[in-house]
Design a protein around this nucleic acid. Structure first.
Length: 234
DNA sequence: GCGACAG
DNA sequence: ATCTTGTCGC
């Protein structure tokens, strides 16, 4: 096998997996906000994508909000051809390129990004949130709606209740990969895991802080809504 | 070999 | 993810 380019998105599945293994070790899983590593979070962004034309077009959306006020300050929506198929475990190669194009159109880079998908809770510990965060060197959190890997018990029924997502057989079995968090009473929980430059504990705290009255935290919920806005409205 | 499998 | 209508409940 040839050496996988350290910065390319059009890789074969085999090379994409090799790249994930090579970059996983560079992900920082402790709190390092801002240039100095301890700046306050004043801006938080949510990102998500949707597909159109039977999957041939990918639409990336980013919504910027103030923190902790959660007032929307910027909204970006871009479209481009889909270039990578959906392959479990390789989601970042399909969505990150479009997300980067949308994020670079923001007037300023956010202090934190909430992603729709897993971060550390990934077969090779390199989910979409890790990949995007490492690429931009910005703190990121993975907030997924369903499980990709690992096992867990059912969290309590109250808002804020959690259950740990634990690794199955493989390297470090039983390792804590993320948290299954109940963001609203009696609603299906979400899976929270660290992306880049953040600890799991802080990821859970911030996700909960952004989850005001819906199952999904505001940044991600609004980005999801924006990505599905068809051309006609404004 | 047989399932599982983010969006 | 997307394809799809109405409907039950707070």
């Amino acid at each position: 096998m040839t050496t996988a380019p350290l910065h390319a998105w059009d890789l074969s599945p085999k090379d994409a997996i090799a790249l994930q293994k090579a970059l996983a070790g560079a992900v920082v899983r402790s709190d390092r906000f801002g240039p100095g590593g301890r700046r306050a979070i004043k801006q938080v962004a949510g990102v998500d994508v949707a597909f159109a034309d039977g999957g041939r077009t990918i639409r990336a959306a980013v919504v910027m909000l103030t923190h902790p006020g959660l007032d929307v300050t910027d909204q970006i929506l871009i479209e481009r051809p889909t270039t990578f198929p959906y392959v479990p475990g390789l989601l970042s190669f399909r969505e990150v390129p479009a997300l980067l194009e949308a994020l670079r159109q923001l007037p300023t880079m956010p202090d934190l990004i909430l992603c729709d998908g897993h971060g550390y809770a990934h077969p090779r510990r390199f989910g979409l949130a890790c990949h995007l965060g490492l690429w931009l060197d910005v703190p990121t959190i993975g907030v997924a709606k369903s499980r990709l890997t690992g096992s867990h018990d059912e969290p309590g029924p109250a808002k804020g209740d959690i259950a740990w997502l634990l690794a199955g057989k493989g390297v470090r079995p039983g390792e804590r990969l993320g948290a299954v968090l109940r963001t609203r009473e009696r609603v299906k929980p979400v899976y929270v895991s660290a992306g880049h430059r953040i600890s799991l504990k802080t990821a859970v705290t911030l996700t909960l802080r952004c989850a005001t009255r819906y199952r999904l935290p505001e940044p991600t919920r609004l980005a999801d809504k924006l990505s599905k806005v068809h051309r006609t409205g404004s």
